[in-house]
């Protein structure tokens, strides 16, 4: 390729370098801002109109909307407006306020787990416990799971409760490689005295990090 041709080509691209990136790279960039902002790009031009619909990365923050019904409506629109054929590669849920958003969390997770999610990061505010739907612990696609608490100071760590998983069976996550649990208590079912080996069916687990409340 001669250089004069190259220069000409580059000048054309300079007009809007971002828009001329392939969708896959734009998705990567948009993954660093939340899904709400990613969707707002759809007004920029016809090029951007539908880019968000094939985003494999879904980052929801409860702070995106102050009122819960609005947030719920937003989530419903995102999940129904999204291209159903595109798999979900990662989901990040931040600032979830425990109980009040349980239904929404379950909605997002149901969608993600039926679209072959590989990576799930959940960061909740410390006030409440969150109950996770049981299908989370029997996913055949999940490779990385991270459960942490947002904005958690050393003081708060001591005085707020942690997540509590009441598990009655072993986690069946055959392809999981990384598990990061911060402030999570694992406990067995109250009805049985048997202790459960939670991770015995996670054959590919390579990195397990567990901070605090070390009652495995």
């Amino acid at each position: 390729m001669d250089s004069s041709h190259g220069k000409k080509r580059m000048n054309v691209e300079d007009d809007d370098r971002l828009s001329s990136l392939q969708d896959e790279l734009i998705h990567k960039i948009l993954s660093f801002i939340g899904i709400k902002h990613a969707i707002q790009t759809s007004v920029l031009s016809s090029r951007w109109r539908f880019i968000w619909t094939s985003m494999p990365y879904l980052n929801f923050s409860r702070d995106d909307f102050f009122r819960l019904p609005k947030f719920s409506e937003f989530v419903t629109h995102v999940l129904s407006g999204r291209d159903n054929q595109t798999k979900v590669s990662s989901v990040r849920l931040s600032n979830f306020h425990g109980k009040d958003s349980d239904v929404i969390v379950e909605h997002i997770m149901k969608y993600a787990f039926s679209h072959n999610i590989q990576q799930l990061d959940v960061a909740c505010l410390p006030q409440n416990n969150v109950e996770f739907p049981p299908f989370l612990f029997s996913s055949r696609s999940l490779k990385r799971l991270s459960l942490t608490k947002e904005n958690f100071s050393a003081y708060e760590r001591r005085y707020y409760s942690s997540y509590v998983f009441k598990a009655t069976s072993t986690w069946e996550l055959p392809v999981i490689t990384t598990l990061y649990l911060d402030g999570v208590t694992l406990c067995c079912d109250d009805n049985t005295d048997k202790c459960i080996d939670f991770f015995s069916k996670c054959a590919n687990l390579k990195n397990l990090t567990k901070l605090l409340y070390g009652r495995i």
């Binding site: 300079d14 801002i33 902002h37 951007w48």
Partner: peptide, 17 residues
């Protein structure tokens, strides 16, 4: 539907020079 509750939205408006 994205803007039904406005909380300091920012958006991508980005044209490289």
């Amino acid at each position: 539907w994205v803007f039904s509750c406005f909380v300091g939205v920012t958006c991508l408006y980005f044209k490289s020079k």
